[in-house]
Design a protein around this nucleic acid. Sequence first.
DNA 1: ATTATTGTCCTAAGCACTTAGGACAATAAT
DNA 2: ATTATTGTCCTAAGTGCTTAGGACAATAAT
Lengths: 125, 125
Amino acid sequence: MEWKIDDSRPIWPQIKEQLMRDIVAGKYPMGSPFPTVRDLAEDAKVNRNTMQRALSELENEGLVITNRTSGRTVTMDENLIKLTRGKIAKEKIVSFRQEMEDMGFTMEEIISLMRGSDSDVEKGE
Amino acid sequence: MEWKIDDSRPIWPQIKEQLMRDIVAGKYPMGSPFPTVRDLAEDAKVNRNTMQRALSELENEGLVITNRTSGRTVTMDENLIKLTRGKIAKEKIVSFRQEMEDMGFTMEEIISLMRGSDSDVEKGE
DNA sequence: ATTATTGTCCTAAGCACTTAGGACAATAAT
DNA sequence: ATTATTGTCCTAAGTGCTTAGGACAATAAT
């Protein structure tokens, strides 16, 4: 898979959030096996420990279940997944909207710009 | 002023971006004097060096002009400000939209959720 | 002329993140 | 029974961020 990691933030939260999005999007179905730490680390080209840091966070949130030696699986808790999806979305929406309005964009301007994400934004004001 | 700084990222980029949003929003008008490094640092409760790091970045982008001993002023380049405003907005829109769609939200769902940022998002799916 | 202000540079220390690699217990595979 | 796999823990080193505070040149203020 394709990993989007930049150096603007620590790596492990970026991985954690990316995996969370993949899980709530159903890319890793409920109850299905999760790749091993070593495989994921190799794929993302990061250290074992870095990936484990991200995975242990996912476990703390209850999104993945760890079985000591048989690997990990995605949670079967459908409600948790839906709640998590909604929570992430809400947080993103609030901060996005806040920052856009801080720059002086109105709600309708934001929506208009989002609909045509290719048109020139710089004519604003 | 109110500073929104969290520990998810280094402090200086957060300050830089916040000041950029304030400038392009006209909160610091074109040509007007900019607070001193020490004052800004005290206000944001960060170290001098941290604030200077942010300000030197703003200068690299041309948004503020530094006059060795008489302080700084906001640029008079109206075009630069408009271009910067558009650039920031576009980047935010693209990444926001990308991450929301990664989670399985459609364009219309996103807009609907944004319009009523208080309603429950968790009923989605 | 003297003093204060401003931006800037500097060292030093503490801290979190990242990488590299070694090691171990518990289980799966053979 | 033996071997491989898996999650996990550990040390060690390097790097960047942050803070603290000292110092200096150029200019403004008096």
